[in-house]
Amino acid sequence: MISTLLVANRGEIACRIFRTCADLGIRTVAIHSDADEGALHTRVADTAVRLPGAAPAETYLRGDLIVKAALAAGADAVHPGYGFLSENADFARAVQDAGLVWIGPPPQAIEAMASKTRAKELMGLAPLDAHDVSPADLPVLVKAAAGGGGRGMRVVRDLAALPGALEDARAEAASAFGDGEVFVEPYLENGRHVEVQVLADTHGTVWTLGTRDCSLQRRHQKVIEEAPAPGLAPALTEQLYALAERATRAVSYEGAGTVEFLVADGRAHFLEMNTRLQV
């Protein structure tokens, strides 16, 4: 039984988790940078621990300091929230190695889904070989294997532009994510971005908890999400659920997660899995 929980995050998500903990009778520990000393999440928690510094790289991204803070505050569990270290397998392992409970998916599941190419392999999907792309394959999308948010992505409609797109995408991905690996896949015109919320326990049970349409985006960043996703045929919804459950089971997932798809021509095309609580 968890008695004291540290949330390795700030702002709205930390406050939500603290509110749930209060309902469950669990003590809470906040962390904060110098700039966030008086922030709401520090005031609603039972205890607040200072991480000296102002920049996230000095504070909220310092897994070693956060683990020390949890131990010093007497916490027995850590919840990462979203963003920051929520999809960092090394941080998850450090939490567990310190004898603390990690409220999130197993580190190996985070690692398995961290690379979009590895995730597609687990789903039995293979990206296009960049050297074998032909005019018949166009348009294609060059995409970073790590990270997201539209960085390291290039739509290619002219075969002559592919080498430059690969080079540009690699450079941007390396700068943004520290990983320059990119891959090529078919670009689906007018596809809808649909997600499936999943939840899995430690006994092998997987729940698919509905769909969201996230097609309204600006620069590959979601603007509005609508749930449930409107206008999906029942058979397509069942296909989405089946693929989402398959992805979840492929990595022995535990906890909350999101499986993302493009839907086009009545079919669901697997994109990736977010191994964390969804924003």
Results as ranks from 00 to 15, higher is better:
residue 197 Q to C: 07
residue 191 G to A: 15
residue 186 P to K: 15
residue 138 L to R: 12
residue 162 L to C: 07
residue 185 E to A: 06
residue 107 P to C: 09
residue 122 L to T: 13
residue 167 E to N: 13
residue 148 G to L: 10
residue 124 G to P: 06
residue 125 L to Q: 10
residue 152 G to M: 01
residue 202 T to I: 10
residue 125 L to A: 07
residue 172 E to R: 15
residue 162 L to Y: 02
residue 201 D to R: 13
residue 185 E to N: 10
residue 113 M to V: 13
residue 178 G to C: 10
residue 106 P to L: 06
residue 151 R to T: 12
residue 191 G to E: 08
residue 180 G to Q: 05
residue 159 L to M: 11
residue 107 P to T: 11
residue 160 A to R: 15
residue 144 A to N: 08
residue 94 A to D: 02
residue 186 P to C: 08
residue 148 G to F: 05
residue 197 Q to I: 12
residue 130 A to L: 13
residue 122 L to V: 14
residue 98 A to F: 09
residue 209 L to H: 06
residue 148 G to W: 03
residue 108 Q to G: 04
residue 176 A to D: 01
residue 179 D to A: 09
residue 99 G to P: 12
residue 95 V to W: 00
residue 203 H to R: 15
residue 148 G to T: 12
residue 197 Q to K: 14
residue 94 A to G: 03
residue 104 G to F: 00
residue 191 G to W: 09
residue 160 A to P: 00
residue 184 V to M: 07
residue 159 L to T: 13
residue 129 D to F: 07
residue 144 A to Y: 00
residue 127 P to V: 10
residue 175 S to I: 11
residue 91 F to L: 05
residue 108 Q to A: 10
residue 203 H to V: 13
residue 147 G to I: 11
residue 152 G to K: 04
residue 114 A to N: 12
residue 151 R to Y: 03
residue 97 D to F: 07
residue 157 R to E: 09
residue 145 A to G: 08
residue 113 M to P: 03
residue 102 W to E: 02
residue 196 V to Y: 00
residue 93 R to Q: 13
residue 94 A to N: 05
residue 139 P to N: 10
residue 159 L to K: 14
residue 132 D to F: 04
residue 171 A to T: 15
residue 169 A to F: 03
residue 138 L to Y: 02
residue 190 N to Q: 15
residue 192 R to K: 14
residue 184 V to F: 02
residue 186 P to M: 10
residue 131 H to N: 14
residue 114 A to G: 14
residue 205 T to E: 11
residue 153 M to A: 07
residue 177 F to T: 08
residue 204 G to P: 08
residue 129 D to V: 13
residue 114 A to L: 08
residue 137 D to E: 03
residue 188 L to W: 14
residue 114 A to D: 09
residue 155 V to A: 06
residue 167 E to M: 10
residue 184 V to D: 00
residue 116 K to W: 07
residue 123 M to K: 03
residue 190 N to E: 07
residue 163 P to G: 07
residue 198 V to N: 01
residue 123 M to N: 08
residue 134 S to P: 04
residue 171 A to Y: 05
residue 137 D to I: 14
residue 190 N to V: 10
residue 141 L to H: 06
residue 155 V to P: 04
residue 116 K to V: 05
residue 174 A to E: 12
residue 98 A to D: 01
residue 110 I to C: 03
residue 181 E to L: 12
residue 105 P to K: 03
residue 95 V to Y: 00
residue 138 L to M: 11
residue 133 V to E: 02
residue 134 S to L: 14
residue 137 D to T: 14
residue 118 R to G: 02
residue 153 M to T: 12
residue 109 A to E: 06
residue 206 V to D: 01
residue 144 A to F: 03
residue 177 F to P: 01
residue 116 K to F: 06
residue 182 V to S: 01
residue 194 V to R: 01
residue 171 A to M: 11
residue 187 Y to F: 15
residue 203 H to T: 15
residue 131 H to K: 15
residue 100 L to D: 01
residue 187 Y to W: 14
residue 160 A to W: 04
residue 170 R to Y: 02
residue 201 D to K: 13
residue 173 A to P: 07
residue 118 R to M: 09
